[in-house]
Amino acid sequence: MEKVDLALCLAVDASSSVDYDEFGLMLGGTAAALRDESVQAAISAGRHGAVAICLLMWSGQGAQAVALPWTRLDSPAATAAFADAVENAPRLVPAGATALGEGMAAGLALLGTLPAEASRLVMDVSGDGRHNQGRSPGPVRDIGVAAGVTINALAVLNEEPDLLDHYRAEVIGGPGSFAMHTPDYAAFAEAIRQKLLREIVGQPLVA
């Protein structure tokens, strides 16, 4: 794979707190965001005009799976094809506890296998619950930051209204890191669109 402007690991919560419909809204919303013209324009606007992206699902301890391997997005057609794959991806991990730190560690390991040189390394964590099993996310976050990875988060507040605070304290880190929230999965598509735009551009968006 040739050089890319960004390597982005999408790490999505597939634990028991995310029911079948919510999981569909999360993946469907991510796919819709990738199909958005502004997101596709941002992908092509970088120095290399390309982003490497992968999709990781995680739930309880020992339950992490690469749903989509590293893929180069360097055209609207490539991005649309990846969006289709996201929307149709099966739920590869069993519903269970929320081993957030374990999911983050798996995402960092994936970034370590990137088959390209990237100007920036980013992990995009999305979920609706705080860590309740396995390694604590804070130390995992610190390992990632030390390795040059920026970790951002999108908190879905349908079950835990204070989840954003947990993500800010324990999950995000690295240059330009940020946490966003959405009230529920119905609004996920717009939230992840804004998040992807901010991650691809690499700086806060002007309202």
Score class of each variant (00 low, 15 high):
Glu2Ile: 03
Lys3Asn: 13
Cys9Tyr: 00
Leu10Ser: 04
Ser15Glu: 02
Ser17Leu: 05
Asp19Cys: 04
Tyr20Pro: 03
Met26Ile: 01
Leu27Gln: 07
Gly29Pro: 02
Ala32Met: 06
Ala33Arg: 03
Leu34Glu: 03
Glu37His: 11
Ser38Tyr: 04
Ser38Val: 10
Ser38Glu: 15
Ala42Glu: 08
Ala42His: 02
Arg47Met: 08
His48Leu: 06
Ala52Leu: 01
Ala52Cys: 01
Leu55Cys: 04
Gly60Cys: 01
Gly60His: 01
Gln61Pro: 04
Ala63Lys: 11
Ala63Pro: 01
Ala67Lys: 00
Thr71Lys: 02
Leu73Asp: 05
Asp74Cys: 13
Ala77Leu: 08
Ala80Pro: 00
Ala85Met: 06
Gly107Ser: 14
Leu110Met: 15
Leu110Lys: 06
Gly112Pro: 08
Thr113Asp: 15
Ala118Lys: 14
Ser126Gln: 07
Gly127Met: 04
Gly129Glu: 06
Arg130Tyr: 10
Asn132Arg: 11
Gln133Phe: 13
Gln133Lys: 15
Gly138Ala: 15
Gly138Lys: 15
Gly148Ala: 07
Val149Met: 06
Asn152Thr: 07
Leu157Cys: 05
His166Lys: 08
Tyr167Thr: 01
Tyr167Trp: 04
Arg168Leu: 10
Glu170Thr: 11
Val171Gly: 07
Val171Pro: 10
Gly174Ser: 06
Ser177Ala: 15
Ala179Val: 05
Ala179Ser: 05
Met180Tyr: 08
His181Asn: 13
Asp184Gly: 13
Ala186Asn: 11
Glu190His: 06
Ile192Gln: 14
Arg193Ile: 08
Leu197Ser: 10
Glu199Met: 09
Glu199His: 09
Gly202Pro: 10
Gly202Ile: 09
Ala207Val: 12
Ala207Gly: 13
